[in-house]
Design a protein around this nucleic acid. Structure first.
Length: 573
RNA sequence: CGGGGCGUGGCGCAGUCUGGUAGCGCACCUGCUUUGGGAGCAGGGUGUCGGAGGUUCAAAUCCUCUCGCCCCGACCA
């Protein structure tokens, strides 16, 4: 392919709105353009990379026995009414009406539609198991789209759903998908972790997220340095290490006018945050509860929600706090608080702590758990951090990473199949509800994650498996007949060898070509110039490498093709 | 939804406070010179100043409304 024939309007300057590396570089390298908030065009190069990711996904899934289908973008509300999600999904679900005033939504996920397909056409246990997937544009009207392709409203997603006769078979498929996802992301050249995750609103009880490690990631995860355990910090199970108990002290009230936050009170009293009981007021399914944490810990709402079995959980508003505690925000404490109390394990048996007094402008010191607030339910409620001890092994310690969630696998059970009556007849002729699993991959997000992980200050460094082209030919003097001839021949030879080649046939200065080549990030660059040709040589440089290698023009195509194949091979091992 | 910011040529921005002929850099077009890491000179085209309304002799600039985009928060596959 010749550069001048492709639409590649690279940008010399950073677009003002791009915050993160992938957004900036994908824009500058002319792979994407924003059309509206969270909605993007894919230009030719971007389309090619997206297609590469798609094809890796497709190949690996097909190999694992999954079948590709294509479901509609516009989905009738009836199915969503049936599952009950029409009313609970909220504003993220973009709802539209047709000319007859019938309600539809743009599919943000397709459990309903896929299950509808299956329930209509699958009758017998003989037809199961079944794993169907599609690669299709999704729309979620996110409150706050950001970071380019990382959190768009419209995005390309692979979503798959599996149907089984029983739990064991569903778990087998779940494990298989987990493994396949590993192959997929390895082939995409990504450094990632499969982490245990919360199942959120989708429901179900078993879930792994595939997190690409990157500073710009929106998720925080911990992984054990000793065993395989890795989890979202919201979910991670860690040990509570016993602290040396401090001596009891009498409860003493202290005037703290206008001093509210842990930081403020800590500074005011000159005592560390570790000696504070932080009291948070929340509303769980319309019911007020108080959660106690050590001053320096953060609540994991995920863990609390799981503990309470609540479907709706939110922080109390200022007015509600006054009603619940009798004091303005910033002065709540466990002593004498007439609410259900849930405390993080770390507070078990603590003594001589500081907390709010449930009275305006007043705190108390000398609070002891056993003596002053014995009636609490203890649980692991705090967010995990680096340095916490792993609960799954002996002696392991957590490391902390930021991650970009590019894939998830969920065991769903019968949540949707029951509501939508997806049933089959077993060998005995009895009607049974199917077991389900659901498996997603953010295809466009994976593309962004790859850039987050593979770039330098000059541009993108695509892993060869998802690069828009494998080799870029850069004749530094396009108007030099010998250079041109050598470049065209090399292009033909490489293409004959099945290599995807981008030939920069622009009549530009060398500097411009090199800079664009670095920006586009095509993994191998071959520089062709009069200087080298005089000696029968061209220059081969890996985008990721600093040094170039001189190779003989004679046999160059074979040599380059080999290097490219090796690079592919490395991602498969 | 709350807080903050920004909309001026394709891109990046100045000009707005203090109203008075709409600018700069890059890109683009033409010519000459140049040519292995974003060339030089000369010439050229490019704008409903996001939109609507208002104030004024006069509005990019002041006022009101509105739309879009970005950031922070709440929220969330």
């Amino acid at each position: 392919m010749h550069y001048s024939r492709l639409l590649i309007p690279t940008l010399k300057e950073d677009p003002a709105e791009a915050e993160v590396v992938s957004h900036r570089l994908l824009m500058r390298a002319a792979m994407i353009r924003q059309v509206a908030r969270g909605i993007y065009d894919f230009l030719p190069l971007g389309r090619r990379t997206l297609r590469k990711v798609e094809n890796i996904v497709r190949e690996e899934l097909n190999r694992a026995g999954c079948q590709e289908v294509l479901l509609p973008v516009v989905c009738p509300s009836e199915l969503w009414q049936e599952s009950g999600r029409w009313d609970i999904y909220g504003k993220e679900l973009l709802r539209i009406k047709d000319r007859n005033d019938r309600e539809f939504c743009l599919g943000p996920t397709h459990e309903e539609v896929m299950t509808d397909l299956v329930r209509r056409d699958v009758r017998s246990y003989r037809d199961l198991p079944l794993n169907l997937y599609q690669i299709q544009t999704k729309f979620r009207d996110e409150i706050r789209p950001r970071f380019g392709l990382m959190r768009g409203r419209e995005f390309l997603m692979k979503d798959g759903y599996s149907y089984h006769t029983d739990y064991e078979d569903c778990l087998r498929e779940y494990a298989s998908m987990r493994e396949v996802y590993g192959h997929i992301f390895r082939r995409c050249g990504l450094d990632f972790r499969a982490v245990e995750a919360d199942t959120g609103n989708i429901g179900g009880s078993l879930s792994h997220e595939f997190q690409v490690l990157a500073e710009s990631g929106e998720d925080l995860i911990v992984s054990c340095n000793r065993c395989e355990y890795a989890a979202n910090v919201e979910k991670a199970e860690m040990r509570t290490v016993a602290e040396p108990a401090r001596a009891d002290a009498p409860v003493t009230e202290i005037a703290t006018p206008g001093v509210r936050t842990i930081e403020e009170v800590s500074a005011f009293l000159s005592r560390p945050a570790t000696e504070f009981v932080k009291t948070l007021l929340l509303v769980a399914d319309e019911r007020g509860v108080a959660v106690l944490l050590r001053g320096d810990d953060q609540l994991s709402e995920t863990k609390l929600k799981a503990l309470l079995g609540a479907t709706d959980l939110r922080m109390a508003e200022a007015a509600e706090i006054e009603t619940l505690t009798g004091a303005p925000q910033g002065f709540a404490g466990p002593v004498g608080l007439a609410l259900p109390l849930y405390a993080d394990e770390r507070l078990r048996g603590c003594a001589d702590m500081v907390s709010g007094a449930n009275r305006a402008d007043t705190h108390v010191t000398g609070v002891s758990q056993v003596r002053d607030f014995p009636g609490v339910v203890f649980a692991n409620l705090r967010t995990a951090h680096a340095g916490d001890e792993c609960a799954r092994c002996e002696g392991g310690v957590f490391e902390e990473h930021r991650g970009i969630e590019v894939g998830h696998v969920f065991y769903l059970g019968k949540k949707y199949s029951e509501k939508l009556r997806a049933t089959y007849l077993d060998a005995a002729g009895a009607e049974c509800v199917m077991e389900m699993g659901t498996y997603g991959i953010g295809v466009s997000r994976t593309m962004a994650a790859a850039v987050e992980q593979n770039h330098d200050d000059k541009g993108i460094i695509w892993p060869v498996s998802i690069a828009p082209f494998e080799v870029m030919l850069v004749p530094v003097k396009w108007d030099d007949a010998a250079s041109r001839e050598a470049a065209l021949r090399l292009e033909a030879d490489l293409e004959a060898a099945g290599i995807e080649v981008l030939l920069d046939d622009r009549d530009e200065r060398a500097g411009v070509k090199f800079n664009d080549a670095d920006l586009l990030g095509i993994p191998f660059r071959v520089t062709i110039g009069p200087r080298g040709l005089a000696a029968g040589k061209v220059e081969l440089k890996a985008r990721a490498a600093t040094a170039a290698e001189e190779i003989a023009l004679d046999g160059a195509a074979a040599r380059i093709a080999e290097v490219v194949r090796n690079a592919h091979q490395e991602l498969r091992s």
